[in-house]
Amino acid sequence: MAEPKHTVKTQAGASLQEIGVRKRLNAWAANHQLVAVETLMRLLSKPLSSLLTWMVIAIALTMPGALWMALDNMEQLSGRFQASGRITLYLTPKATEEQGQQLSDRIAALDSVANTEFIDADTALNDFRDNSGLQAALDFLPENPLPAVILVEPPLGIEQAALLRLIEQLKSYQLVDSVQLDMAWVERLQAMLALAERLIGVLGVLLALAILLVVGNTIRLAIAARVDEIRVVKLVGGTNAYVRRPFLYTGLWYGMVGGLLAWLLLILCWALLNGPVADLAELYGSGFELKPLSAAAAMVLLLAAMLLGWLGAWWSVSRHLDHIEP
């Protein structure tokens, strides 16, 4: 037998220094890359069982995702109503057109007002006549029963307290007969939306927990199948981090592919619902369109899925892996 070619005279410590920090860092990065690819390949080599886990994750993510998409659309709707949630000032019959216009301009200059519109009594009557279909009845009236009106539009997202202060101020003008704010139903809608948001939050937490358990259990089985390998790796000096790495990447892949599938499912939901919703909106004379999940929301979904997969793997690994000793 030939003389051994590699001399064993150098000690292990020295041989590690030989390698150099940069090379070791590169090797570490290369190992991450290798493990990432290897674990993905391992999952793809068993497509059916992997797909099962992926679909469970995807469905668990799709449910809160779809509800969230619906909520987002409802908020968009309520936002439109809020924009039209104007304050109507009915002026006293004594007010002349000139006085009304002046008051309207003064109010428009206020900080807590975005915009005003003055509608004199004649214009109001004409509008009413055109829109109400009561033309014949109105023609019988001896004089114009409608007062002049100033429409005041508070800025979007004005706070409740500021709004109430504004109303008090508007009431104090002498020319103003009464102030009407039709916001109650908007408030009710918003309260319902807040409730729905909370419900989605609770549902989301429960389903996130389900994902953690599913990934955790899948990783537990993967660990059980590779006990021999883990023993050998620990025996020849593999750190816990090294042993954990492939399982954490596996969890990350489960989450990521599950998240992508969930995204696809949400796009599918949107495509299926968009047509009927648009038809319905048209019947109500609204140009409302179902918005798909925004790119930002999709990214959040994907990142959340990856995080959940990784956490599930971490949970499983820290429960089972450290106990496997050679």
């Binding site: 590690l16 390698i19 070791r24 090797a27 050998v232 790796v233 020849v236 000096g237």
Partner: peptide
């Protein structure tokens, strides 16, 4: 395996 664990480059 031990070299991979210790962080050697594939060439080394």
């Amino acid at each position: 395996l031990p070299l991979q664990i210790a962080g050697y480059t594939p060439a080394e």
